[in-house]
Design a protein around this nucleic acid. Structure first.
Lengths: 357, 357
DNA sequence: ATTATTAGCGAAAACGTTTTCGTGTTGAAA
DNA sequence: TTTCAACACGAAAACGTTTTCGCTAATAAT
């Protein structure tokens, strides 16, 4: 019972040809009922399963998608993976994950490693370093190689491919609007540097919402944090920044933070300073993770539906992969098919908890 | 520039044989310097990379390991993955993940899918349903097929394979000891049903620590929660259970919870009941995740070093895979090599924060 | 009785590699 | 001049499939 049995072995044992075995198992009508029975029984007995690698080589497709994300110990990203895995499995695909660790080089290495036949397509979110460098040649290169890419969340206009994004702008507008509606006039935003597109967009949404309500945005109320400082592991730094910010701007009555960490830290700092939440200051965060649910008070957030993002991205990719199949001959003959790429925008939703009125 | 170039194409273009190209690229001395130069230059120009699938078929090994875990949106499991990925990549392996969703059937399906040639070995943590059923035939079957398995965290004695586990018992002892040392006499434990081995072991550690200190364990102070209730998404249920527990046992001055969720919920409930932490009640949790760091007060925990677990598991697996290679001929000739499996115990560490004195 | 079909099966190519084993050519040794 | 090694390369097998094409024998049609 060691090792998997192959067609060749079955053929030898039963004294037929390999082709006969293959056909019998796929129930081809070229083979007599009698022979089929015999072969099937034997295969069953020895638990024959076709070798995936051989199939992949033959079909020149692996039925697996490569996921490439900055990190995996992260609620949003792991949620997206779970969504991808769900539909991938349902549609007969496997999932292989690579981690860039926010590094440009690791991103490239991982892509090249997987692009050499291991996967049929990529679903990825761009690393911060790549975003900073604005060097996207590895993406376009693999697309030119014929490997489709679907980007999610951290996407970039320079690369022509399918994309699934959160409606960052609208989500932020909604969040800030809620603050306005519940009486806030001095609304601050705690955000990231502009090169992270989601930070930029959420800031824009913040400004738009204010302007929609005839409130002039006050630059002093915009706190841009440099997250290259690894604030995650230096909470004191983060708290200090926010405390200084609060000290400098005494009138703040509402805070919109572009991620969970900033939001709950803001709450903590405010509470330490003697403010009550939501009575004195209301807080809304972007990204609905574990922290929001368990903070005190529980945090009102803009949920980005990570699972749905993953599902949609997977569907987009697999659709494209299967389309490629169908139109392969046409593709060879006709002029390059006008590939128009899809950009899916996943709506956000405000989850109301106790940090707002 | 569409599609990857193959040896065959290079051979044709340069009017040499496929073998010559292959040898030239691997710098064989069978080939003249001149020809090598030419071929290498051409290959470089067209960015030739050997096709992984073809290599896998040839070598009958894929250089990828399959990870099979119950869920991925989970701090501990994703941390383990990050550890696996780290050493896997360093040692030239890729990582393909499957999610069992705590389901027996999905676990089997996933295993079979991957076992047909897609991976060289498994690293896995057993699903709850499987643990309940106590049906482990799929594990032994794949091991008998010649595919090595390394189990971590949720392991089981019935399956002979390498294992990496947390020192649950000792970790719990340490935690409870700390509570005792800081003055607690009425120490409660909030744990899971016994079929989850980690729950059972941690409970044992709790009892042992008490006995070590000549404190008679009080059955009333042991709260076993049935987590099939999906308490994660029904926090009220969880809170109610804990509140009832506190009400029934007024004297509690220390709580040891076997996971983060139970711990912070216990804190929350206690605080709502007017207790102060750590003055009135001290709390320690098992598993160091995001919640612990950000709870109020921050939670003292027993850290299980998930990343290290992943790293060790990956090393164990890859070591075994490479050993297989070396001793293959010997294996064929000699009697079955005495496989003695390794069980690594990763020590825990108490991370002191503000929920204890 | 001859031809045309059809049923049932096998040979071989193909996917992209690596590697073993020739084989022909060259230059040097005898 | 003959012999032999070294050199430089190619043919072919193998990994495990699927699939196209042929082939043989039996049956049906003429």
């Amino acid at each position: 019972m060691k090792g998997k049995i192959t067609l060749k072995q079955i053929a030898k044992e039963l004294d037929v040809s390999i082709s006969t075995v293959s056909k019998a198992l796929s129930d081809s009508k070229e083979i007599s009922e009698e022979t089929k029975q015999k072969i099937k029984a034997f295969a069953e007995l020895y638990n024959y399963r076709p070798n995936n690698i051989a199939l992949s080589l033959q079909n020149r497709k692996t039925k697996t998608i490569g996921i490439l994300i900055p990190e995996i110990v992260h609620h949003f990203f792991s949620t997206v993976i779970s969504g991808i895995e769900l539909v991938a499995n349902k549609r007969g695909y496997n999932v292989i994950v690579g981690l860039s660790n926010e590094s440009f080089t690791k991103e490239i290495i991982n892509m090249e490693m997987l692009a050499n036949g291991s996967i049929d397509g990529f679903i990825l979110s761009i690393s911060k370093e790549t975003l900073l460098k604005q060097d996207y040649h590895h993406f376009t290169a693999t697309i030119n190689q014929g490997i489709p890419i679907v980007m999610f969340d951290r996407v970039v206009a320079e690369v022509a491919c399918d994309k699934v994004i959160v409606d960052d702008l609208n989500g932020s507008v909604k969040a800030v609007q809620k603050l306005v509606d519940t009486g806030c006039r001095n609304i601050a935003i705690i955000t990231t540097m502009d090169y992270v597109s989601v930070g930029r967009l959420r800031t824009q949404g913040y400004i738009k919402a204010l302007e929609d309500n005839k409130i002039t945005p006050n630059p002093n109320l915009i706190l841009k944090l440099d997250d290259s400082l690894d604030l995650e592991n230096h909470l004191e730094l983060l708290e200090n920044e926010i405390r200084k910010f609060f000290d400098l701007n005494p009138g703040i009555d509402g805070v919109f933070a572009v991620n969970e960490l900033y939001a709950i830290t803001a709450m903590k700092v405010a509470q330490k300073m003697g403010f009550h939440i939501p009575e004195d200051i209301q807080v809304i965060g972007f990204t609905d993770g574990v922290l929001s649910k368990h903070a005190t008070p529980t945090l009102t957030t803009v949920s980005q539906h990570g699972k749905r993002i993953g599902e949609q991205a997977a569907n987009l990719l697999i659709d494209r992969l299967q389309n490629e199949d169908d139109s392969y001959e046409q593709y060879l003959v006709s002029s390059k098919p006008k590939t128009d790429y899809i950009k899916l925008v996943i709506e956000t939703e405000i989850i109301e908890r106790d940090s707002t009125k």
